[in-house]
Computed example of a mutant assay.
Amino acid sequence: MEALYWGCLFGGILFAVVSVLLGDVLSSAMDGVLDFLSFDFFNPMVIAGGITVFGGAGIMFTQYTNMAAGAHVTLSILSAIVVSILVYFGYVRPMENSENSTGFSEKELAGRIGTVTVPLPAEGFGEVMVRVGAGNTAHIASSFDHKILPAGARVVVIDVVEGVLRVSELEERKGDE
């Protein structure tokens, strides 16, 4: 039984190292062949951690306790399950949820406040700077109300038509500053 534990310990460590070092290379080489196996809990880090803990716990229970072989196996499996759950909920899942994208859709810009950077004529195009996420983006814009809007005017995006923001001057109420 001890040989199985040692094999799991070293196999888990080897699997973790290989998946960390070659994970992207293998993934792109296989071109998504194994994507159907992508269940959240069956993450390589969770699997490798469970196998490694099973082997390590089995070795420790065998060498440092006087329990029967069945008890070693049971406690090793329970240890592997507990550590796998902790790794999944403590590391893997929070890291999946923390992935942020700086991308946005132009349709999301409707209702946003911006500032005119290149004056908008009554008929024609200018440029508006809109804050998106942590940065600002400049977009081609036209006046929704067909009014001249000078540089520096605060505007609200009414809609987006063929990549052009249609904006209207923002009328601020007294006390809103």
Rank of each mutant, 00 (worst) to 15 (best):
F61V: 00
T62C: 01
Q63T: 03
Y64G: 03
Y64D: 04
T65K: 00
T65P: 02
N66L: 09
N66D: 09
N66E: 13
M67W: 10
A68H: 07
A68K: 06
A69F: 10
G70E: 14
A71H: 10
A71W: 14
A71R: 15
H72L: 08
T74N: 15
T74V: 11
S76I: 03
I77N: 00
A80H: 07
I81P: 04
V82Q: 03
V83A: 05
V83M: 05
S84V: 13
S84Q: 15
S84I: 11
I85Q: 04
I85T: 06
Y88S: 11
G90M: 07
V92S: 15
V92Q: 06
R93D: 15
R93C: 07
P94I: 08
M95W: 10
E96S: 10
N97M: 13
N97L: 12
N97Y: 10
S98A: 15
S101W: 11
T102R: 12
G103D: 10
G103C: 11
S105G: 13
K107R: 15
E108W: 07
E108T: 09
L109C: 08
L109N: 07
L109W: 06
L109A: 08
A110M: 07
A110T: 09
G111Q: 03
G111E: 04
R112D: 05
I113P: 03
G114Y: 01
G114Q: 03
T115A: 06
V116S: 00
V116D: 00
T117L: 08
L120M: 03
A122Q: 02
E123N: 12
G124W: 00
G124S: 01
G124I: 00
G124A: 00
G126N: 01
G126A: 03
G126F: 00
E127G: 06
V128Q: 02
V128Y: 02
V130P: 01
V132N: 04
V132E: 04
V132R: 03
G133M: 05
G133Y: 02
G133R: 00
A134L: 13
N136Y: 09
T137H: 14
H139N: 05
H139F: 07
